[in-house]
Amino acid sequence: MLKVIVVDDEPLARKGMLVRLTAFPELQVVAECANGPDAIAAIQAQTPDLVFLDVEMPGMDGFAVLKALQERHIRLPYVVFVTAYDHYAFNAFEVQAVDYVLKPVEPERLKAAVEKVLTFHNAADSQKRTDKLAAAVARLTGDQPDTILERLDNAEPVVSDRYPEAISIKDSGEITRVQVQDIDWVDAAGDYMCIHTRDGQTHILRRTMKELESELDPRLFVRVHRSAIVNVNTIAKLQMLTNGEHQLVLTNGQAVKVSRSYKDRVKQVFSH
């Protein structure tokens, strides 16, 4: 049997995962943790084979937990990431030992993740496990797997800060640095992005929505439409219109349409 630890700051999410894991006789849950520091202590004490690790947790998120384990030279278990966001493009992972599941967790998706871990476990050694984890973290951070492995060998932090604090915008021979935290929302205008900031200014950025979204922390920004991204801290309310569509009202009074394909992602903001 594989020893398992479940890490999630949401009690209902932990309970739901524990219930679903009872379907797998190969797994034995030895601990559940509500935050990063407790997870590190439990992993060190229990030496689990597998950890279901929530990516988004206050204070110390899942990435920080991985960094702390590496820095303390604690043996890395298999890791299945759990997240409410699909921003990280987990579906691109071609790995056996490290997988992901999206919240709310679907039984079939969880079964597939567990089967991947079990398959790899039957033939894996410590180096293969490290290689797979390095590949997964590389996908998350944009770094090369070799760089991740070099950091492991040198006892350096595995995960560096991914999201910039400011964005440089070139316009008419000038470069303006816009603090990311000051961005209220962004909308697309052809080949350009209109970045609307807290001080009422609008900055024009020549970049695609996909490129800009990759630079914005998904814990702070949510895609609400094919052509709109909103700072979650500026959302005042979500309205249902008479035609059945939805729109957000921001703290500055701005209304932003929510497309049907992004409605569930927006509702996640209101579940926290």
Rank of each mutant, 00 (worst) to 15 (best):
M1L: 08
K3D: 02
V6R: 00
E10R: 07
L12V: 06
A13W: 03
G16C: 03
L18G: 01
R20M: 02
L21K: 06
T22W: 01
T22A: 05
A23M: 05
A23C: 07
L27I: 04
Q28I: 00
Q28W: 00
A31H: 05
A31V: 04
E32I: 00
N35G: 04
G36M: 04
P37Y: 14
A39S: 12
A41D: 11
I43V: 12
T47W: 00
V51M: 02
F52Q: 01
L53I: 07
D54L: 11
D54F: 12
G59Y: 04
F63N: 04
A64T: 04
V65D: 07
L66H: 06
L69Y: 10
Q70L: 10
Q70Y: 02
R75W: 04
R75K: 13
L76G: 03
P77I: 00
V80I: 15
A84C: 03
Y85C: 02
Y85H: 15
H87F: 14
Y88S: 11
A89I: 04
F90C: 03
F90S: 03
N91T: 15
A92M: 13
A92Y: 09
F93T: 08
Q96M: 12
A97M: 15
D99F: 02
Y100G: 07
Y100M: 13
L102V: 12
P104Q: 09
P104I: 00
E106D: 13
E108Y: 02
R109H: 10
L110D: 08
A112G: 01
V114C: 01
E115F: 01
K116R: 15
T119I: 03
N122V: 02
N122M: 03
K132S: 10
A134L: 04
A136M: 06
V137M: 09
V137F: 02
A138L: 06
A138F: 05
R139I: 13
L140V: 15
L140S: 10
G142Q: 04
Q144D: 15
D146F: 07
T147K: 13
I148A: 07
L149Q: 08
L149H: 06
N154H: 14
P157H: 09
S160G: 15
P164M: 05
A166Q: 15
A166I: 01
I167Y: 08
S168W: 05
S168T: 14
S168M: 07
D171S: 13
G173M: 09
I183N: 04
D184T: 14
V186K: 01
V186T: 01
D187E: 15
A189R: 11
A189E: 14
D191V: 10
Y192F: 11
M193F: 00
H196A: 15
D199C: 06
G200T: 09
Q201N: 13
H203F: 14
H203P: 10
I204S: 03
L205Y: 10
L212W: 01
S214N: 13
L216R: 10
D217P: 03
P218K: 10
R219Y: 11
R219P: 08
L220E: 09
H225V: 11
A228D: 04
V232M: 12
V232D: 03
T234H: 15
T234V: 05
I235W: 05
I235D: 05
L241P: 06
E245F: 05
Q247A: 09
V249A: 02
V249H: 00
V249M: 11
V249N: 03
L250T: 10
N252Q: 08
Q254G: 05
V256G: 06
V256M: 05
V258T: 02
S259C: 11
D264P: 01
R265Q: 14
V266G: 02
V266N: 03
F270M: 14
